[in-house]
Nucleic acid binder design. Structure first.
Lengths: 206, 206
DNA sequence: GTCTATAATGGGATAGAC
DNA sequence: GTCTATCCCATTATAGAC
């Protein structure tokens, strides 16, 4: 593990941290465990990062960005708003089943940040990105389905984050995708009714 | 701190653990910190509990029971099912505002249990009690309002737990009760529509 | 830049005096 | 039963040889 730019090693340590923490939890992500997972000696960790908290900062920011891109990629046109939303939910549940540890780590990091003064601001930032993702997703879904939302977007976005958060915490306990989907479906069918046909938004018409 | 029955000291240690962890997080609830909070020396901790995990077991069971009783106490007759549910939600938000650390600890303990083989079963048990509480609450609310649910109770109960879980995780980040209530209100208005007037359930009629 | 070795701290648990 | 003292381990972080 000789020649490697400082940035490359930082990236490798972040990836290693995510692997360890997804597998065994944030608490198990000690500097030693992360360095070992990355195939480096402990001293290299502290050569690349001033402290464990500095790595955690970058890790949270990185993960929030990944979630954001995943949400963006999840949107596909459906027959109507109900189908469009349902596809997005199915995409999320599929991701959740494939990477349970990944979503679990996001909760653990958030709770750790909430309790750590040095990282407290990241808890806010994490959810700011969630709300942004939800807003983007709802806006895109409405456009694809040719409808407009009848509830103010901030309320709607918070509802979506609330539902996804709750669905995730419950799923993480029993891994029961069918029941999770059933609960989400009932709620989504309702969300889909909070729309009206769009007055076709022409080229900047009055 | 002389004369005190073993049971009393166990109870006192559990209470101390809850205080410390509510204030500073589960991770800060070391055996030393808990013993100090209870005004005991460390050795007393291990005289009362075989290990820290044994205390955590009892703590989770105790807390789940408290939440259960709180849910039971929250029910009051309202003008209709919508009002009845809204009162229950207001009661919960009030509790959340008064004891943020308490709800935070429940999440932290659940996540800790999910990652700790020795405590893994408690994560299931915790949510089993949540679902039971939700079922009880929904059943009572319907009775008080004279309606019947039109969706199977398991799905309905999971929806409620999902909404409360999500509302709590989001609230814990920004402590924005108004926005949390706004999101819940929209969803609850919907839940209230999933009913039909009850065919008066006389004395065991056919 | 990279590694070995170690400092400094704090944790869970227990031995053994009283 | 209760306390002091301590064991033993893991952690973050760094000093200093190469």
């Amino acid at each position: 593990m000789a020649r490697m730019s400082a940035d490359a090693r930082r990236a490798e340590l972040l990836a290693a941290a995510l692997r360890v923490m997804s597998r065994d939890g944030v608490a198990a992500g000690t500097t030693r465990a992360i360095a070992a997972e990355a195939g480096m000696v402990l001293a290299t960790f502290h050569y690349c990062f001033r402290s464990r908290n500095e790595l955690l900062r970058e890790l949270i920011i990185m993960l929030a960005g990944i979630e954001r891109e995943a949400a963006r990629a999840a949107m596909q046109p459906g027959r109507n708003i109900r189908e469009t939303l349902r596809q997005a939910v199915d995409g999320y549940l599929e991701h959740l089943e494939k990477n349970p540890g990944h979503e679990q780590v996001l909760f653990e990091l958030n709770h750790h940040a909430l309790r750590t003064p040095e990282l407290r601001d990241l808890a806010d930032e994490q959810y700011r990105q969630y709300y942004e993702s939800a807003t983007m997703l709802l806006t895109t879904a409405a456009e694809l389905a040719g409808v407009e939302w009848q509830v103010e977007m901030p309320v709607l976005a918070r509802m979506v984050v609330t539902m996804i958060d709750g669905a995730t915490t419950t799923w993480l306990v029993d891994h029961d995708t069918d029941r999770t989907r059933a609960a989400l479906d009932v709620m989504l069918d309702y969300v889909a009714t909070l729309t009206k046909p769009a007055r076709r938004p022409r080229q900047g018409s009055a």
